[in-house]
């Protein structure tokens, strides 16, 4: 089954395509950052809507469950193929970034919810006892306590989302994986491009995961 003779790692080829892949990695990073920014906002809106009256919270809860229960790839297709039918024509990149943002917004809404529920009920009662208004209760009391413990979870989702960006290649965004695919189909050499893509992902996500772990440990310590 193994035929090592056919395997050759062409270092020269690898170095030749590396700059092109690194430029593509920059696109991947941009998609991650913009997508995540959307997710942060969408997540907060969904989380707050869930706390609203039932007429709002039930449909929103269903929407969140629905997004979380269906594949991101299909959701991307929906945005990519269906939006133009209604006269909304966006570039593949923008469509993909919106898809990522909505999908992970649904996940982040759960993080917000857990973070807000984590704030002790006594804090709300103290805010009432001190006669804070609603806005100040949120901005001065609840969110400052809810947000810091959320940070590691946000970090985790940022990394997860980064690793999901190759899906954008399915709707023709020329990010890292798509670039490797193009190189591969041009040269019939797939080992170097795909291996390099894997290594680039590893090189970026592994240190990021270590940072998040450290954050997590710090918050776990503070809670004791």
């Amino acid at each position: 089954m193994f035929d090592w003779i056919t395997f050759t790692w062409d270092m020269e080829f690898a170095l030749e395509i590396l700059p092109q892949l690194l430029r593509a990695a920059w696109i991947t990073l941009q998609a991650t950052v913009v997508g995540f920014a959307i997710a942060v906002v969408v997540g907060l809106v969904l989380a707050l809507a869930r706390r609203g009256p039932r007429i709002v919270s039930w449909p929103v809860t269903f929407l969140i469950e629905f997004i979380r229960s269906t594949p991101l790839l299909v959701q991307l297709y929906v945005l990519y193929f269906i939006l133009p039918l209604y006269g909304v024509s966006l570039s593949a990149f923008v469509t993909g970034v919106i898809g990522l943002g909505l999908h992970y917004g649904a996940y982040l809404s759960e993080v917000y919810r857990a973070g807000i529920e984590h704030v002790d009920k006594g804090q709300w009662e103290a805010a009432i006892a001190l006669n804070f208004d609603r806005r100040r209760t949120w901005t001065n009391i609840v969110l400052p306590q809810a947000l810091p413990p959320m940070l590691p979870m946000f970090g985790n989702y940022f990394i997860v989302m980064f690793k999901e960006t190759p899906l954008l290649s399915a709707i023709t965004v020329v990010e890292l994986l798509q670039t490797a695919k193009i190189i591969g189909s041009r040269t019939f050499n797939y080992v170097e491009p795909y291996t390099l893509v894997g290594l680039i992902f590893l090189a970026l996500s592994y240190p990021a995961a270590l940072v998040v772990n450290r954050l997590e440990a710090r918050f776990a310590r503070q809670r004791q």
């Binding site: 690793k163 894997g198 996500s205 995961a209």
Partner: peptide, 15 residues
């Protein structure tokens, strides 16, 4: 965990 599942899929299939 550090690389993307889609990249792994392509690697197994094409590389």
């Amino acid at each position: 965990r550090g690389t993307s599942v889609l990249v792994q899929l392509f690697w197994f299939y094409f590389a």
